[in-house]
Design a protein around this nucleic acid. Structure first.
Lengths: 225, 225
DNA sequence: GTTATAAATTAAAATATTTTCACACATGAT
DNA sequence: ATCATGTGTGAAAATATTTTAATTTATAAC
């Protein structure tokens, strides 16, 4: 797969912060475009499809908040809000309006990077990474198919939802309750069985699961990479 | 990118609220331990390093307020106060004493989550080390694995929790009771057995432990570098 | 060194949890 | 209606973990 370089729009009226963040993001392999006002940002959005927007909530003129409100639906672009300290109320509102994350100023550049990566991981997977490959296994979530050693297995909606979630958070432990919520099953045994069947499809050696492992007393984890 | 799961202590004398909040926090990917009194909370704080404490201000016995006053300085752990309606005075006092935030009851679980995240964002070292290396030993807490001399050992949830805590406080002595609390074991021998098992996995020479040592009459310590 | 006490080790038994199996039920196709 | 197929369930089997107990080993005090 080609190396994906995310294109980020950095919107802030403060020249200092703007160029600093841009520099930092560049060093971390992001392509960065900046805007010094909400209006300016809107112009750029019209012609460029960004992968993510970093937005100062306290800009003069049209506030960052309104900006998101008006454009979030059309955008389909995740937004990280930068908030000045002490504006708790607005912060919460901003989130509910649809920001994907927010970061109180002053912030560590490193922290911003982390959050950006975090969000990109989620959104990019959801939108385009519907085919996941690891070792001899290929999972096509769109087609509900798993290919393993030249054999093809069909997965059902239940199995798909579980894989979808676990693939979004590899390494995260899902309790049975978590999984039950996902697929509307509340009997623990039933969830076990779903896992067993899934293993038969994705594991090379289902008796010794390598990818979909049990954490006894805790739940299940998916290891891919 | 490692996933950090925050460990939260929920202190409330009301069983209903306690379990409700615990459930909700669990669903939102927090690890939750509960206490039903300030005294009980203190016990747990002594042995577990929490990332955040949610505290009901109106508990009987030692009030939540005193509790914070006495321990806030040592704790270094952020606290969110839950306050019953109309106790404005106390609320303010609580804040001044050092709560990091407060939330009037009744509250929306969603709002609690927001505030927790907000505080954690500020306080947590984001790239928390989940992989620890010393000499020939590498412990990957995320993957429940220990690598020692090219061999790979799997640890279970019990062993992981112990390592997790001991790694947070290298050099600190944990009594058997401490460890028992952590992993819900109360038989002393059982803890010995767990330690033995752990040593087989992390020690180069399990018979002469170098890292996980016994302090006779007192407990166990982990020495890493 | 001897003795008393604490801790480590081991194996076996008891318990708890997970996996698997076989059946039952539902659904949709023929 | 019958059949084939897929999915959920309970129970049995397999496995992992904890407890117990017996023994050995280590430590500290005398």
């Amino acid at each position: 797969m080609d190396k994906f370089i995310a294109h980020i729009l950095m919107v802030d009226d403060d020249d200092g912060i703007r160029s600093l963040v841009k520099k930092y993001l560049n060093e971390n392999n992001f392509l960065v475009t900046t805007a010094n006002s909400a209006e300016n940002a809107l112009e750029k959005i019209k012609i460029i499809k960004f992968d993510l927007i970093v937005l100062d909530i306290m800009m003069p003129g049209k506030s960052g908040l309104e900006f998101i409100m008006e454009n979030k639906k059309k955008l389909e672009t995740p937004v990280i809000l930068l908030t000045a300290k002490g504006e708790a109320k607005e912060r919460v509102e901003g989130l509910e309006v649809g920001a994907d994350d927010y970061l109180p100023k002053p912030f560590e550049p490193k922290e911003l990077i982390l959050r950006i990566k975090n969000i990109l991981n989620k959104t990019i997977k959801i939108d385009q990474k519907r085919v996941i490959e690891f070792e001899n296994v290929k999972i096509d979530l769109n087609k509900f198919l798993i290919f393993k050693n030249n054999r093809e297995f069909k997965i059902n909606a239940t199995e798909k939802v579980i894989l979808e979630q676990m693939i979004s958070y590899p390494g995260k432990t899902f309790s049975r309750e978590d999984i039950g919520q996902l697929i509307n099953l509340d009997k623990e045994r039933s969830i076990d069985v779903v896992i067993t069947r899934l293993r038969k499809k994705i594991e090379i050696d289902p008796k010794n699961p390598k990818f979909l492992q049990t954490i006894r007393g805790t739940g299940y984890v998916l290891w891919i990479e």
